[in-house]
Every structure is written in structure tokens, then in C-alpha cells.
């Protein structure tokens, strides 16, 4: 199934958006979107891992024996996650503290292993790289959007910029229940948009 490069990226962004359509990778989505900055950082970290692991798996796909392919992919992904973790710890210590254990948990993010298995193992290096970028961008878009919604409704700020004073905000949105509810409504809205536009 040959797709042009642009189509592959658009695929990850919209029609097969990992959060809104495939509903994968829920844990970091709900946990790290209590502010727009956190959501975006998590998305970008995952994009880095997705890109790296998709390329690596695609390069190695003919060398890895079929029986051990899943553990092999997991080791590849874990390597990139460890690299990302060390880079974030060194250059962005504030982000490192706010994302906490969810950075190493990128290794069990179903999106990363899922794309390695479903796409990178069967396509060229170039297409896999683009798919990694597309999925990563889709993930980052979804996380940033959810982060913006939660931060705005919860504290009246977006990326730290005050939009309205926070005593008008509903604190619940930056807490656990708000994450579930905000994401639920966002997916419902996306479903409606998709069914009426038939993307």
C-alpha cells in the first residue's frame, strides 16, 4: 500500500490519530495533561522515541528473527526511551520532575510498540520515519489540546498566560476526574466531527 509521504503524516495526525481514533496510549494522555506545557513536552518526547524506534526497527527488520521480534522491538524502544530520559533529565530538569515516571513509561506506550509492529516492520525506512513523525505529531497535537483545555478550564491559564482569574476555574479539571471527563468529551466531539465530515 504505497502512500505519499504527506499522506502518511496526515494519517497520523487526523484519520488514525492515536488518541482520538485508535484510543491507544491513554495512560500518559490522562496523566501528563494537567497543563499545556506538560502535555506538549510528553508529546514531543514520545515523538522522539517513535521516530527513533520506527527507523531502527525498519532498518533491522530483515535481521531480527520472527520468533523474538517483540522482545527485540521492546529492547530497541527501551534504548531510545533511556536516551530521551537522560536528555530530558540533563537539559529540561523542570519538565523531568513534572513528567516523573511517565518518561520511562513511554516504553510501554502501546502506540510505540504498535507502530513498530504494524508499520515499521513492513515498510521502508523512509516511510517508517514519516509514520513515526506523523503519529508523534498526532499524539503531541492531542496531548497539547487536552492540556490546553484542562489548564484553561481548571486554572484560567494557557501555557502560563492568564486568560481569566483562577477563582473562576473548576479545579477538578487539573485533577484526576477532570482528565477522564475532558478526554471523554473531546473524543465525543471528534467522533461527531469525523462522522459528519467522513475523513
Amino acid at each position: 500500500m504505497k502512500k505519499s509521504g504527506f499522506r502518511i503524516i496526515l494519517n497520523g495526525l487526523l484519520s488514525e490519530n492515536p488518541i482520538f481514533v485508535l484510543v491507544l496510549g491513554m495512560c500518559p494522555t490522562l496523566a501528563t495533561t494537567n497543563s499545556a506545557v506538560n502535555g506538549m513536552s510528553m508529546g514531543l518526547a514520545t515523538l522522539f522515541v517513535l521516530f527513533g524506534s520506527n527507523v531502527a526497527v525498519s532498518v533491522l527488520k530483515n535481521i531480527i528473527p520472527d520468533k523474538v521480534r517483540i522482545p527485540a522491538y521492546v529492547v530497541v524502544i527501551a534504548t531510545f526511551v533511556s536516551v530521551a530520559e537522560m536528555l530530558i533529565h540533563a537539559y529540561f530538569p523542570v519538565i523531568y520532575d513534572s513528567l516523573g515516571i511517565f518518561i520511562p513509561l513511554i516504553v510501554v506506550n502501546c502506540i510505540v510498540l504498535g507502530r513498530a509492529e504494524a508499520f515499521a516492520a513492513k515498510n521502508t525506512v523512509f516511510s517508517s520515519a514519516l509514520d513515526g513523525i506523523g503519529m508523534g505529531l498526532g499524539f503531541t497535537f492531542a496531548l497539547t489540546l487536552l492540556g490546553v483545555v484542562r489548564e484553561l478550564l481548571g486554572t484560567g491559564k494557557v501555557f502560563g498566560q492568564i486568560i481569566f482569574p483562577d477563582n473562576y476555574g473548576a479545579l477538578i479539571f487539573v485533577l484526576a476526574p477532570g482528565a477522564f471527563i475532558a478526554l471523554g468529551y473531546l473524543i465525543a466531539i471528534m467522533n461527531k466531527v469525523r462522522s459528519s465530515k467522513s475523513l
Binding site: A176, F180, I181, G184, A188, N191
Partner: peptide, 22 residues
């Protein structure tokens, strides 16, 4: 409602459950 079937309702239910546990 059509758009709410499946995951959205599940998530909102989970949110209410989370609220209860708070």
C-alpha cells in the same frame, strides 16, 4: 447519543468513579 457511544461514555463514567474515590 451517537458520538458518545463506547469510549467517551466509558471515560466520563471513569471520571465520576475517580471523583467518588477522591
Amino acid at each position: 447519543p451517537k458520538g458518545m457511544e463506547g469510549i467517551p461514555t466509558a471515560l466520563i463514567t471513569a471520571g465520576l468513579l475517580a471523583m467518588a474515590f477522591m
